[in-house]
């Protein structure tokens, strides 16, 4: 379970996150929805401990990031918004490297790696060096290395951006599986239709503030729009 409690973050004169609160429950997919520059990435970064909030707190499974960021990092799997790979390592070596950083024992590491390669349909690239991987292939490697330690909470920053139809589908299926495994899945997106088809809960943020949250039905009610896309536009426009 992920909980964000009234956090703030200022960069120079710009207030990136202006008092955001929400939670993501186990066994549910929570979508963090907002236009570009709304503060989604900054919020996630404060959750996984790379950006320090100016005020407020974030916790994972009851552990606060400020108190013990390492304990939090052990409980989360993260797909950050940068999808860089080590061009001279193979896909399998990427997964192994991250698994070893999580200090998995050898047996578990080998098993999980094989499992993830099969799950994400990476058989053909597993032994290839990452140099020249396509967007979709890179994304799969990033997802696999984020999940190698089988974290109970998963944070995905724009997991489908730039992907073709087939890769997008793989990612959606993966998110579904993670929900079945009773994990708390929090993912950000600026695409309403994607969020609506996947999420149990939606948190819409705009200009650093939460403008609406709840189930897709509740969002429709709040905005007075039947179409979620229209609802999103109406709600974000109200804050600007």
């Amino acid at each position: 379970m992920i909980r964000v409690e009234n956090i703030y973050k200022q960069f120079g004169d710009v207030t990136a996150v202006n008092g955001v609160s929400f939670k993501a429950e186990n066994g549910q997919v929570t979508g963090l929805l907002g236009p570009n520059g709304a503060g989604k990435s900054t919020t996630l970064r404060m959750l996984y401990g790379l950006v320090e909030p100016d005020a407020g707190a974030a916790s994972v499974d009851g552990v606060y990031v400020n108190d013990d960021s390492i304990a939090v990092q052990q409980r989360i799997g993260v797909l950050p918004d940068t999808h860089g790979l080590y061009t001279r390592l193979t896909a399998r070596e990427h997964i192994h490297y991250f698994g070893q950083l999580h200090e998995l024992d050898r047996k578990t590491l080998l098993e999980t790696t094989d499992h993830l390669i099969e799950l994400l349909d990476m058989g053909s690239i597993a032994e290839r060096r990452a140099e020249g991987f396509s967007q979709g292939e890179r994304m799969k490697v990033c997802l696999a290395r984020a999940l190698v330690h089988q974290p109970p909470n998963v944070l995905l920053d724009e997991p489908t951006v730039g992907l073709d139809v087939m890769s997008t589908r793989t990612v959606r299926e993966l998110i579904g599986k993670l929900r079945q495994e009773n994990k708390a899945v929090l993912f950000s997106s600026h695409l309403m239709h994607e969020v609506s088809s996947l999420c149990d809960q939606i948190v819409i943020i705009s200009a650093g503030k939460v403008v609406a949250q709840g189930t897709p039905d509740r969002i429709r009610d709040l905005s007075g729009q039947q179409d979620l896309e229209e609802a999103f536009v109406t709600l974000t426009e109200r804050t600007e």
Partner: peptide
């Protein structure tokens, strides 16, 4: 290569 962020998210 933009690999630093992912590396630093590890509990190390």
């Amino acid at each position: 290569r933009a690999t630093l962020e992912a590396l630093l998210i590890n509990p190390v």
